[in-house]
Simulated assay, not measured.
Amino acid sequence: MTQRFDQAMRAFEPALPLGVAYSGGADSSALLLACARKWPGQVVALHVNHGLQAVAAEFEAHCVNTCARWHIPLHIARVAAQAQPGQSPEDAARIARYKAFDALALVECAGVAIKSIAIAQHADDQVETVLLALSRGAGLAGLSGMPQQWQRAGIDFHRPLLQVAGSVLRTWLAAQGEAFVDDPSNSDTRYTRNHIRAELLPALDRVFPQFRDTFARSARHAAEAQSLLEEVAMEDWAAVVHAPTDLPLIKAVQILSPARQSGVLRWWLKRSYQVIPNAAQLQELRRQVQACTTRGHHIHIKVGEGFVERRGLVLEWFPLRSPG
């Protein structure tokens, strides 16, 4: 039953030294132990204490004790992950976690700074991500799910277990005789992801036993299509950009087809401002751009935490201005 896990670990070849995100749960415990056995002396554990639960201190203590027993160096980051108004707890925790990884990436293993970080998200997590994207009416970027590899702040991040079911990891860990902590929030169905895990995944398993593989394949297809769209958007950007300002020329955008207008405007906003417009905002922006045929035509539309406005011949995005 654990053959898929063994295959994933054989195929996983990150740049060393390697940091493994370690919560103390079953998934990260299996990944950390397997990596430490494959690359002895080249692996460190990275634990982020979000401080959101009463058991956070117990989880940290478990990680300290386990890493001492496994002879794996452990680095701990304590963060404030409380959600801001309008922000989900999951998003707040994720943002805080990756900021912590940025800091932990400076740690060393055997005197050398780590080059890669591995995260134990698995096939069930990928299915949940795709289902959440579908429920929100996401485009190709959302339907691509979680990438298996990416770079952030000069570090290679990896998710080597996206083809492995969570139950396989627990079975493998039990065979090693190893214990793990169980986050009580994982069973709280007030969170949509947990509701999907508790209700939808068992149903999918009964009706479509191969759903983890097929969802993963669909996510890869979506990711390839999204990559192609981004290449087209980059080519279109070269045709619409006003070089002195690095801003899009309105008349040049108008020449493009509606779909390519959406692509290049979305690419510009993300590249220049890290802003991702929703579908309604992008449609309204495109409509206003098409209607801009006179010198005095005004464009002003909220996109993200700011506004896109006309500035002469070009479009520009401005963040919301603080009162006073």
Rank of each mutant, 00 (worst) to 15 (best):
V44T: 12
V20S: 09
A113H: 11
L52N: 02
A153P: 03
A105D: 08
G154T: 06
A93F: 13
H158V: 06
A133Y: 04
L74W: 00
L32T: 00
A77S: 12
V43S: 12
G41W: 02
V79C: 03
A123N: 00
L131G: 00
H122D: 08
G139I: 03
L74H: 00
L106D: 14
E128R: 12
I119L: 15
D156M: 14
A36E: 01
P160Q: 07
A93V: 14
G25L: 05
Q87C: 09
A141I: 02
V20N: 02
I117W: 03
D156N: 09
L161K: 01
N49R: 13
Y22T: 09
A77Y: 05
H71M: 09
G41Q: 06
W70I: 03
G145A: 10
G142T: 03
N49P: 01
Q82P: 09
Y98F: 15
H62S: 12
C109Y: 06
K99G: 15
L31S: 07
N49C: 10
A56D: 14
L143K: 09
R37Y: 00
L31T: 05
L52W: 04
G111E: 06
L32V: 02
Y98I: 02
I119Q: 12
G41H: 03
F101T: 03
V79E: 02
S116I: 00
F157G: 01
V79F: 05
G24D: 09
I114V: 13
A77T: 03
V127D: 09
Q149G: 03
A96N: 05
A93G: 14
A92T: 00
N65R: 14
W150D: 05
A26G: 14
A133P: 03
S135W: 13
L132R: 11
A54T: 15
A30Y: 05
G51A: 07
G145W: 08
R37V: 00
V112I: 12
C35W: 02
R159T: 11
Q82N: 12
G41K: 02
G51E: 07
G142W: 00
A56H: 07
D124S: 10
R37K: 12
N65L: 10
S23Q: 08
L161W: 02
P85C: 06
A83F: 04
P40I: 06
R94P: 08
V79M: 04
E108C: 13
Y22H: 08
H47R: 04
L106H: 14
G154R: 02
A61H: 10
H158W: 15
A77N: 06
V44F: 03
N49L: 10
A57S: 14
A110G: 10
A110M: 01
V64W: 11
H47I: 05
D124W: 05
D156V: 06
P40Y: 06
P147S: 03
V107M: 11
